[in-house]
Simulated scan of single mutants.
Amino acid sequence: MFTIGEFAALGRASVRMLRHYDGIGLLRPAVVDPRTGYRHYRADQLGRLNRVVALKDLGLTLDQVRAILDDRLDVAELRGMLRLRRAQLAAQVAADTARLAAVEARLRMLDAEGRMTTEDVVLKEIPAVRIAELTGVAAGYQPPDIGPVIQPLYPELFRRLEVAEVRPTGPTIAWYEPEGDGEAVVVHAGVTVGVDPAAAGDVAVVDLPALPAAATLVHHGPMDDVEVSMQVLARWIEDNGWRAEGYAREVYLDYCPDATEKGVTELQIPVSRR
């Protein structure tokens, strides 16, 4: 026989948890001294404790653990329970991975803030341009909202243009406009072309109007870090007596979908005098 402290040490559990398992009927001691109330356990009970610890490590609840150990689940039910737990863990890993990427992007932003100044901003006129495009709708204008929407649009756009035998004549361009009265944004993923709209097959061809004045800035690196560049543009616009007129256009001067850290993008914000 083992005291509760000895049994806890052998089974990687705490004395408090063993008392709790006793209280809920999950693992009762072999003997309880009627005079002192001390609990004692047999060596063959260690197997059940080990199974409790292992199943808990999978994230199962104690009720689920008890059902498994007491053979109240058949194989199909046990398989379903474990598959559900697997899906929960996969979703948690995906969420944590996204949070990690956001933290890393924020750290890169903090590093970049000390290097970028409004001296990098250029005010210029943007000529009209014809683009072939596909569109999608994002929940908002922040990079985590835009990225998952715009990224699959470009491979599909290029595939359709290849089918229509249309060759791009210039850089890819993204532009945005509000969707209704909420925060949703229509995402336009386009590429410069020189064809008549009827020649582009099932791809829309539109003419982006000229911008008489635009505050522009060349952004280097992934678009997840674009907020720093947008802050620099906003500061320049405010300091120089201009007013922003809508969302920025993004001209991908060096489009690197497989190595986003090498990307070069010109941000163009239409502006007018206050």
Rank of each mutant, 00 (worst) to 15 (best):
R85E: 10
R85F: 04
R85P: 05
A87P: 00
A91L: 11
A95R: 09
R99A: 06
L100V: 06
L100S: 08
V103R: 10
V103P: 02
V103I: 14
R106S: 11
L107R: 14
L107E: 00
D111E: 09
E113Y: 00
E113C: 07
T117H: 07
D120Q: 06
D120P: 03
D120V: 12
V121I: 14
V129L: 00
I131V: 15
A132P: 13
E133M: 13
L134G: 10
T135V: 09
A139H: 01
Q142K: 13
P143G: 09
D145G: 02
D145T: 14
G147S: 09
V149M: 13
I150L: 15
I150V: 15
I150P: 15
P152F: 04
Y154T: 15
P155N: 03
E162H: 07
V163W: 00
V163L: 08
E165H: 05
V166D: 08
R167D: 00
R167N: 02
P168E: 08
T169Y: 04
T169F: 08
P171A: 14
P171D: 12
T172Y: 03
A174G: 15
W175K: 12
Y176L: 15
E179Q: 14
G180R: 11
A184K: 11
V186Y: 01
V186L: 04
V186H: 05
V186N: 02
A189R: 07
A189K: 13
V191S: 01
D196G: 11
P197M: 06
P197C: 02
A198N: 04
A199H: 03
A199V: 02
G201F: 02
V205W: 03
V205Q: 06
A214P: 01
A215N: 06
A215W: 01
H220R: 15
G221C: 01
P222A: 11
P222I: 01
M223K: 04
D224E: 15
E227V: 10
